[in-house]
Nucleic acid binder design. Structure first.
Lengths: 150, 150
DNA sequence: TCCAATGAGTTGCAAAATGCAACCTATTCG
DNA sequence: CGAATAGGTTGCATTTTGCAACTCATTGGA
């Protein structure tokens, strides 16, 4: 992907991967666009209807996601549509989307409140994601720390 | 946690856990505040200095994170500071932060570009997170789909 | 005791991002 | 040919963000 930002902008924190990711997809819409792309949306109109986003904002976000190598834009076979597809980098955001989804399921819904569920081909729910150390043992935030670069 | 939004606001998508999570922490700063809290920041001034955020924005974000049950605010022992600590729900965001970090490491840095690294107590890097089905087999975005609620 | 420093905000205002509605352009179907 | 579809762009109002200056309470030291 293109590992530079548009002219005039700068990374929030030049060495932190979390900050970079937030710079790229940390706004109200980008991640929801990616979510819908993972769920099969491909055209401008599909995103528009699923998200209820303003047209100009959608135009802007799709352009930036293409620019950052997360989506790929191509002419559709039918000649009058465009097709937006996740690149490899975009598909690789699946893990992050699942992590955010699982947190939401645990903490952002009342116990009796219904929510959509992510399932595999057989309709079975996914396992819960948990960070693991090299030895395979679960690792908490307190048991880890950031090693800054020289 | 408080599973309601402030009066006048509404969920982007009432049944999608991804959308709810993005509603709560999907802005430029909230996730970076949480990242720094996981890395040991506890006071207003610490967050201010680490992030380079405007004071009024930090005030607002800390208030919202407390409101949403992600941070807890208390008076520090020294009497003149406040202490912000991650609640259980806040600590549970560790998985999501790690997922975003690992994506950034893979796709938002040039091969030779240095970045900070998350390590355990022995200085060893974490394993890569990957969504797994109930059977323990890796699951891709294409091999899964969203089941909507009735 | 008083005074400067520290910590945590608040306020006012300018700039940028967002959202809505109307408009435009090309293709295609009947 | 004319209407419908798809994918935008433009103008303008609203909201959010960011910067700098100001406030207020505590507190440690001369």
């Amino acid at each position: 992907m293109d590992v530079t930002l548009a002219a005039g902008s700068a990374w929030t924190d030049p060495t932190c991967p979390v900050a970079r990711t937030v710079d790229l997809i940390g706004d109200r819409w980008s991640l929801l666009i990616i979510r819908d792309a993972m769920d099969g949306a491909t055209t401008f109109t599909e995103f528009l209807q699923r998200l209820g986003i303003a047209r100009n904002i959608l135009t802007d976000r799709l352009r930036k996601l293409v620019e950052h190598g997360i989506l790929d834009k191509s002419a559709a076979a039918d000649g009058r549509r465009h097709t937006y597809r996740l690149t490899e980098a975009g598909q690789d955001l699946f893990t992050a989307v699942v992590a955010l989804r699982q947190w939401g399921e645990r903490h952002a819904f009342a116990p009796d409140e219904p929510h959509s569920v992510l399932v595999d081909d057989q309709g079975r729910e996914l396992r819960e994601l948990h960070p693991l150390g090299q030895d395979g043992a679960p690792l908490s935030a307190e048991a880890s720390h950031v090693r800054r670069t020289a």
